[in-house]
Write a protein that binds this DNA or RNA. Structure first.
Length: 596
RNA sequence: GGUCCGGUAGCUCAGCUGGAUAGAGCAACAGCCUUCUAAGCUGUGGGUCGCGGGUUCGAAUCCCGCCCGGAUCACCA
């Protein structure tokens, strides 16, 4: 039992005995004592004043006397206004360290066969263009969330739904046929997703030109858009695709395969992966069947023009289109189909969709529809919505062309990491392979940490210049601190200084206790991160840990410490600290290097 | 207009299940490398926590109203 729990119980006991009133558990407020006061744990006594009929100081003193007498670990106490600051005996903190030293699992729940199964959908790209900055936030959040859920004892299936069909890919197909001159990724040396993305852009350019010409010729905007030859050709391709025209299907497969190859490279670079990939071309028909079933069961209704709708006005929402009047499916239909397939493939307890917050409404509707259709997890599917990524010079909008390409960004980060590392002389004596691995690790660490440290639900500002800054609250700062810890442990080893499994009994100083308090909170932080779906919590925790460690590192000698017991304690502390940082950063998908 | 989210230092962000004097980083200035890695550490300056009310011993945090910014309410995905 942790000391906090013991204190809580004893406070209840004390208040009951002293004042004849049994306080409720939520009245016991414990907090970490602020640094400017002496003590480790603080009890807030204001809630008990009504029972004690005494002033805050006197009440705190009486409680302090009682707790000091009844809890062995409490050495002494002091009172500041209504705050009872308890000083915990140093031996308790050494115990905390030793517990962590011999339990590398940090008390996390292990995953067993009857653990709850969580499916996390993330990434969800379109096959008509490469991944961009928004996808990076998505991928990093999804991957990290999966790691955090696993650490909390959930079975996790990471899934990706690839939006591989529809008018968007037909636009690229048409542009490639018309202006492609048979170009391939191999013939051009271009990544497949970029090649196809370029044709999508080309389509848009030509389309806009055609529309402008038609408007100049006297058409209205709507007429011009409908009559654009390029758009008509793209729609014709879509129709042929839906009719399973062999040539069209073959073309579609060829172009998509190029894109997938490109995506795989990007995913690999980002270090994200999936357990199961779904394709909308496989699920949209299932969705249609489900909607048809819903129609037959009277859950939905058909309008005169043949379109199918769900009436959600009773749930405070609008009416929602499920099938177009021509019988084709819409986005919602596809998501229903995908859900159906997933439910068939896995016994999902909890479904999490990592999708941008511009789709909040969509997922509200989806939850209601799935519930209506009888999916047991429909109503409490969780839409893990995250905010947009903005750029200093405006919004991040693909339609307006102001996007940061994911591959370009990673390349840029790697280049700067290499240059900076070289300037600082960090790569001296490295083989080219080691050097490359190191600066890539640093570049990815910088990018991932920069994005994950921000509360997911907030719109965030991505400043390319600042993101490559390796000082301060950044990934490289944490990686660097880890490398120093590892270096220290290596040096101890080469100096013939043994690092024991457990620390001997000593009295830690204030800085050391601060570090131990933080280490002690690790499982709690990770649990909370899973509860509120926030990798940012873990990121900022890692930073706190490292910041505290760096101060300690500068204030105290470790290997130069003459008292062998204190030295042994500090080495165990460093070892455990390294393990926590490694594990914590691992939950963010960030690798920490042995040296940098 | 309805719904949802945000507004904390010049900038980027923590803190939000109510607690002590609101914290980091960047940027500016001043120190610290013959000593475990200076991508570091220390110090200085910098705040009407959007505004107004309310609840409370106590509000950046909870409630109500308002202001500002964003998202969404498509036979787009």
């Amino acid at each position: 039992m942790g000391i906090e729990q013991i204190i809580k119980e004893k406070v209840i006991e004390a208040v009951s005995q002293l004042y004849g009133f049994e306080p409720k558990a939520e009245m016991i407020q414990l907090q970490s004592t602020r640094k400017e006061f002496e003590g480790d744990i603080t009890v807030v006594v204001f809630p008990f004043l009504r029972a004690s009929h005494k002033g805050p100081e006197q009440t705190a003193s009486q409680l302090g006397d009682y707790l000091t007498e009844h809890i062995q670990e409490i050495q002494k106490y002091n009172v500041v206004k209504g705050f009872l600051n308890l000083v915990i005996d140093g031996s308790y903190w050494v115990g905390v360290l030793n517990h962590a030293a011999v339990n590398p699992s940090f008390g996390f729940k292990s995953v067993t066969a009857d653990s709850k199964l969580v499916m996390i959908e993330y990434s969800s790209p379109n096959t008509n263009k490469p991944l961009h900055l928004g996808h990076i936030r998505n991928n990093l959040l999804g991957f990290s969330l999966a790691e955090i859920m696993k650490a909390n004892g959930y079975r996790v299936v990471k899934t990706n739904i690839v939006n591989d069909r529809g008018i968007h890919i037909c636009k690229s197909m048409y542009a490639w046929l018309k202006w492609g001159e048979g170009k391939t990724p191999e013939s051009t040396g271009t990544k497949g997703d970029h090649l196809i993305g370029d044709f999508y852009v080309r389509f848009d350019k030509e389309y806009k030109k055609e529309v402008a010409e038609l408007i100049a010729g006297g058409m209205s905007k709507e007429e011009a858009e409908a009559n654009s030859p390029s758009m008509q050709a793209a729609h014709e391709l879509l129709r042929k695709w839906e009719d399973r025209d062999p040539d069209t299907i073959a073309l579609w497969k060829k172009l998509n395969s190029w894109v997938y190859k490109g995506f795989d490279e990007t995913y690999k670079m980002l270090g994200v992966s999936f357990d199961k990939i779904y394709y909308e071309s496989d699920t949209y028909l299932v969705g249609k069947d489900e909607v048809t079933r819903g129609l037959e069961e009277g859950l939905f209704y058909r309008r005169e023009d043949g379109s199918v709708w769900a009436d959600l006005t009773k749930d405070g929402l609008d009416e929602k289109l499920l099938l177009r009047s021509d019988g084709t499916s819409v986005y919602m239909t596809q998501d229903i189909g995908t859900a159906k397939l997933r439910f068939k493939d896995y016994s999902i307890d909890k479904m999490i969709y990592v999708v941008g917050n511009e789709q909040i409404y969509h997922f509200q509707v989806l939850a209601l529809l799935l519930d209506r259709l009888g999916f047991k997890w429909g109503k409490d599917l969780y839409h893990f919505s995250y905010g947009m990524v903005e750029l200093p010079n405006g919004k991040m909008k693909s339609r307006e062309g102001t996007v940061v390409d994911a591959d370009d960004l990673v390349d840029e980060m790697v280049t700067v990491a290499r240059q900076t590392s070289q300037e600082l002389g960090k790569l001296d004596g490295y083989s080219p392979e080691e050097a490359k691995k190191t600066y890539q690790t640093i570049a990815l660490g910088a990018l991932k940490y920069f994005i994950l440290k921000v509360d997911p639900k907030k719109t965030m500002m991505f400043n390319p210049q600042e993101s490559i800054d390796f000082n301060g609250n950044t990934g490289p700062f944490i990686q660097y601190s880890y490398a120093r810890i590892r270096s220290l442990l290596r040096k101890a080893d080469s100096d013939g200084i043994a690092i024991p499994q457990e620390s001997p009994a000593i009295t830690p100083n204030a800085k050391e206790i601060e570090l131990l308090k933080l280490i002690n909170r690790f499982p709690e932080i990770v649990g909370e991160a899973a509860d509120i779906y926030s990798p940012a919590l873990v990121a900022n925790y890692c930073y706190d840990l490292v910041k505290e460690f760096n101060q300690f590192y500068h204030d105290f000698s470790i290997l130069g410490e003459t008292d062998p017991d204190i030295r042994a304690f500090r080495l165990v502390l460093c070892r455990v600290l390294g393990e926590v940082i490694n594990r914590g950063m691992g939950l963010l998908g960030i690798t920490v290097p042995e040296r940098m």
